[in-house]
Nucleic acid binder design. Structure first.
Lengths: 142, 142
DNA sequence: GTTGCTGCAAAGTGTTTGCACCCTG
DNA sequence: CAGGGTGCAAACACTTTGCAGCAAC
């Protein structure tokens, strides 16, 4: 398991009177190796293969922990379940989601971010986070 | 009930071998008078006060109908339930959501839209729809 | 040995569906 | 009067919670 992420988790755990357990290690390690945008159920299935006794509730509870400790970011593509991606490893980005094949292209456009700040300032709004999702067809599906 | 919206619904209904019912009229009329971003449950409560026998399932089915006929737009602010707003009356816009008091500020920035198109073009992606939500604190809450 | 963590199952939430009856066109 | 619409309740999918036993510190 990568050192950095485990450190982040252990820091958070140490600072909050929590404990490191076999299950949490397993879930974190699978999460880190995961392709992006995992759902709790998918993560559970993968964890179950290396740690069969783990419960789905523990996966949910650990994902909340990872979100609170800023290792994971909660996403919602409107398909009825929450998804999670690594926050620590790759910075902020937005998504293009192909509604035909499900492919997700990540992108980041500095000027879009800049104008978001501008429009927020005009409205005396302080941005904490934002998400921009574009739905449509990728080059293979149109 | 405003003429235009009823016409839109009737056109859609006529073109699809569907029927206009008392319940659908009631739900549409409440929806049109609603403040923005209603959830199915909220709409149901309001409709129930003027049409007590209506069922929650009918509200869901009618919202699907309104969405298909382009009168309503489905939103998802990540609070675990879908929300709906009028599509016919006011054009596209994005949202700033105050995580403290729940206030929602709508905005539209032409340049943000323009750069979205640009980044989509660069990736050979065809945008069908998009949504940009910014979460943070409004001027009263920060 | 405390105190937090886990697994299980049960309960919750929002949404969808099956079905007999009802009503529109 | 035929075929879609409705209400009700049951089913669903995802997530959260209560609790007794377990394990980390």
């Amino acid at each position: 398991m990568p050192r950095k992420e485990l450190d982040v988790l252990e820091d958070y755990i140490a600072q909050n009177n929590l404990k490191i357990t076999r299950q949490r290690r397993a879930i974190l390690s699978v999460f880190l190796e995961c392709e992006k945008h995992v759902s709790a159920g998918e993560l559970y299935n993968q964890v179950a293969s290396i740690e069969p006794k783990v419960g789905l509730a523990t996966v949910y509870r650990t994902l909340a922990l990872l979100t609170d400790s800023d290792l994971a970011l909660e996403l919602d593509f409107g398909d009825g379940q929450k998804r999670y991606e690594h926050k620590y490893m790759h910075g902020h980005h937005d998504h293009m989601i192909c509604t035909e094949c499900g492919k997700i292209i990540e992108f980041n456009h500095p000027l879009i971010e800049k104008f978001q700040e501008e429009v927020a300032r005009q409205n005396s709004f302080t941005i904490i986070s934002h998400k921009l999702d574009m739905f449509g067809l990728c080059n293979e599906c149109r």
